[in-house]
Structure formats: structure tokens, C-alpha cells
Design a protein around this nucleic acid. Structure first.
Lengths: 237, 237
DNA sequence: CGGGTGTTTGATGTCATTCAACTTACGTGG
DNA sequence: CCACGTAAGTTGAATGACATCAAACACCCG
């Protein structure tokens, strides 16, 4: 797929005039990263917007005490840094490849310029930011009312709707330990909680492959403690 | 203060042309609510944007199991519902007055129309959404790495920077029990955690008045487990 | 004065973290 | 090809944090 094709397929750039798309195509760079490499650290997080073509990226922030917090884990067709285009000065973050990765990198300066002059682009951006905010807000709710076991179940449910797999066979898209931090818990807690939900909801696991027999049981176990009802209308991802 | 003056003082409407401001003035309604009354429920949360002139509002969502989650507690000069203007379909919420309240209510339809035609307005909205997202993202981080005691301390610190009170005497702006839910904990936990942080950081309390002797101690206790450093550059509020 | 609400306190239970030991899988170098 | 080291994952026991349930208290307002 050419850069030009990629650019036109990105939601953020929908309905933009041809000359803008062309300039974007010229400015964007296709890049490749090996699993485990750093894409950028916080000092550069304001400089580029990244669009993931294929692969997985983890976003994290450094904590004063020396540890790190996982903010998000993203994959195909998602953008990183939209909220850096306007207004965001402080909230920096690191991005690292957790799988082999193909991405499009677009200088933030160009987009800052674009948003002030192109109304359509600002509308696209607004739509995406609104959606992200929804997602964040729901995740916060989850953190405060769901147990570790339910958080994992909720993740599995979203994985189901994402893959739309009928038979409900799926696999963890990345390391369990990373998923644990993503969900705000320790790896040990994750391990135990996963075992628990598997037992309670008729799920079989072999390594990182999951066999969900009854989505209903999972929904019943997970979605009681939530303001949304399954399936969560693609709010996630 | 007249509606016209209010409208021009709102950040969301900065630098808008005179005729737009005038239409806004005609469309907006000044309303008053008594403490404890419902401003709108989730079915109406997509219909109006609310600007708080004076008072406190709590936003909440209903949970499937019958309980409610507090999403946010807001006061003077803040808007509610910006992310309903574009894109947000599902994530509804209730708003209730937790103090006597004076607010400006603006029909969402008007703003949806405005954002598609007025570029400046879309830029204003973008700035505000970016900031809100920052705030949310930071709060999520807090929920996953801070203890109940630290969450309270963090709230107190933000209260300090907000009031800019030199002597560090301040009072809880609303009920402790509400603040507890806002921070995602039980009232009992809040009470114990507050006692703990007071003991550890030389804070005296009389009813809802707080005497903070040493901000430094508080910062040391709270801000180790955070990606931001004090003072958090007005990210909060 | 009496009843409601908000707050505190105590006893107890549940859940998650911590620390440690151990297994498994994978890759490297001898 | 095997020995070894490393990292991820699991498991157990002990600790700590928060929730829960129950009771008591303070305060305000009718």
C-alpha cells in the first residue's frame, strides 16, 4: 500500500481537499520498528503524530518514583498524539513497539498549521477526540468499580466484539504481563484473576489461546458493574 | 452580570464574531437551581450544554446493578457537555445541583450547527477537549497507582493551587461523602484516610476546614506516585 | 424535641500486593 | 547438541489496603 493510499484511508484525514492530501503524502514518512524498540520518548511526543499501519504500540509515562505507568496499548489503524495538536503542553509520554511495526509518522508542526487553516480537519479531529474521551471516561469508571477479575473479563469481551469471532476462540494480542499493567494490576494478580474467571465462566485456556464457550456467562459476570450494556457499541478500540 | 457579558467571558466562545455572540446571547437561558435538584438526566444530556456561573454540579452515570458512579464534580466557569457537540452518541450522564446554582443553558443543536460552520469555534472546542482529555488521562493514572490516602492528598494540593491561599487554610468545597465517591472510595475509607494524611503531614482539621502547615510534606507524601510534578500546571479543574 | 443526613469508629471479611520459589520456554554460546 | 542464563508465567504464604456491616455521634431543620 502506498503512502498516498494510506493517507486517504485515515479517518483523521477524511474529506480533505486533494492538495492537502498530497502535501500530507509528501510530509509523511513510512517507518519500521523492531519489536521492543523505543519509537519516541516524552521529549519527542509533541513532535510527531503516529498512525499505526500494522503492529502494536504501548504508551507509557515515567513516574517520579522511577516506575512507569501504561497509558494505553494501541494497534492497527489508530493514531497516537491527536491531542498534542492543540493545547496539550504538559502531558508527555513514551511510545514503544511491542511487536514488529509499520507506521506512518507525520510532523506535528504541519498538523498544527493545518488545523488552524482547514475547518474540515478540525472537525475530523474533534470527532476523534470526543471518541477518545468517551473511551477514557469509561475506562476510569471501570477502574473505580470493577474488580481485577471483571476488568479482565471486560477486556475479553471487547476482544470478542473486535474480532467478531463466532466460535469465540481468540488469543491474547500481547504479553499477559503487559496486559496486566495496562489494566492496572500486578502480573501475579492477573494470573490468579484469569484462572478465576476461566473457572467461573467456562473458558478454556492453552497458553495464550482462549476458548470462550458462553459469552452470556461472561457478560453476566462482567457487565453488572458498568454503566454500559454489552456489546459496548465499539466505544473501546 | 448580563447574559451577553457572560457569553463573552466564556473561553469556549472566545474570538467569535459579534453576530454569533449575539445569537448565542439570544439562545442561551439563565437558570437557577436549588441545592439537591436534578438539572438533567441522561436522556437530556445530549440536548443542552451547561455553563456554570456559580455553584457546584455533580455528574454521574447509572450502573446496571442499580448504583451510580460519580464522573466529575464541577464548579464556576466550567462547561458541561462539550464532548456531546460532536461524535458522542452513547456516553450519557446525569447532572445534579449540589449547591444552589446559577447556570447558562445553551441548546446543543445550535452548537452542532455552529461548529460545522465556524472554524474559530471548532478550534476553541478542540483546545478545551484536549485539556479535558489531559485531565482524564491523569486521573486514570492516579486511580491505578495512588492509594486512597494519596488521592485525598492530591485533591488537597490541587485545592491549594486553585485557591492560591498563602497560609494554606482551606475548606472542603462540598460534602466529604460526595468527595469520597468522586475519588472512587467509600465514605468510611475516606474518613480514615483523611485522618491518616492529617497525622502524617501536619494538617489540622475542624469540621470542613483544613489547616495545612507544610505543603512540602504533603507534596512529598503524594507526588512520588505520579508522572507530574507539583504544582501540576493547572491540569486539574 | 425528634428525625434525617452526614460523619466517625470498630470489627470483620475480601481482594490485591508483595516476596519468594519454581516451572516453562526461548535463545546464546560453548 | 547440550548447558546455561534470561524472561514470562504460575503458585503459595504473609501482609496490607479497602469494603462491608453495624453502631454511635454530631448537626441541622422542621
Amino acid at each position: 500500500m502506498s503512502i498516498s493510499d494510506l493517507i486517504s484511508s485515515i479517518q483523521l484525514f477524511e474529506q480533505l481537499p486533494g492538495d492537502v492530501l498530497q502535501k500530507l503524502t509528501q510530509t509523511a514518512k513510512l517507518q519500521y520498528f523492531k519489536k521492543g524498540t523505543l519509537i519516541f520518548d516524552s521529549s519527542r511526543s509533541r513532535k510527531v503524530l503516529v498512525y499505526i499501519v500494522t503492529g502494536w504500540i504501548k504508551l507509557s509515562r515515567d513516574v517520579v518514583d522511577g516506575s512507569e505507568v501504561i497509558i494505553d496499548v494501541l494497534s492497527d489503524k489508530q493514531c497516537i498524539g491527536e491531542n498534542m495538536i492543540l493545547g496539550n503542553e504538559d502531558q508527555l509520554f513514551n511510545a514503544a513497539a511491542i511487536s514488529d511495526l509499520e507506521l506512518l509518522s507525520i510532523p506535528m508542526d504541519f498538523l498544527r498549521e493545518l488545523v488552524t487553516h482547514n475547518h474540515q480537519f478540525s472537525l475530523n479531529l474533534l470527532k476523534i477526540l470526543s471518541k477518545k474521551q468517551q473511551k477514557l471516561s469509561l475506562e476510569m469508571e471501570h477502574l473505580s468499580i470493577k474488580s481485577a477479575t471483571q476488568l479482565i473479563g471486560c477486556f475479553l469481551l471487547r476482544l470478542c466484539t473486535l474480532k467478531k469471532s463466532e466460535n469465540a476462540v481468540l488469543r491474547f494480542p500481547y504479553d499477559k504481563s503487559l496486559l496486566a499493567s495496562r489494566l492496572g494490576m500486578r502480573a501475579e494478580t492477573f494470573s490468579r484473576a484469569l484462572a478465576k474467571i476461566c473457572k467461573e465462566c467456562e473458558i478454556k485456556t492453552v497458553d495464550d489461546i482462549l476458548h470462550i464457550r458462553s459469552i452470556d456467562k461472561l457478560v453476566e459476570y462482567v457487565c453488572q458493574h458498568c454503566s454500559q450494556t454489552y456489546p459496548c457499541k465499539e466505544i473501546m478500540q
